[in-house]
Amino acid sequence: MPLAATQTSVPVVVDNDKCIADKGCTVCVDVCPLDVLRISEMTGKAYMAYDECWYCMPCACDCPTGAVTVNIPYLLK
């Protein structure tokens, strides 16, 4: 069966103005137990690549610049 791309709204938001991934920071990507954050090759900033979040918050707490906001995933909000 062929695959389709389905839209999903992800809970984690990164403030690009605050994120210093382009200076070498990868803290949020490193601490995420579900390994769902990545640094975008386009913007050089962190973002949520997969909607597989345990809303556990280390990414937000450990970010040195306070750039990460974790929202409750829509399905259980």
């Binding site: 137990p33 579900l34 597989e52 979040c53 345990w54 809303y55 556990c56 995933p73 399905l75 259980l76």
Partner: peptide
């Protein structure tokens, strides 16, 4: 499966 249907919305660490 959590009642929310969200695969990672588990009680245990979803990893």
């Amino acid at each position: 499966l959590p009642a929310s249907g969200y695969l990672f919305g588990t009680y245990e660490n979803a990893a």
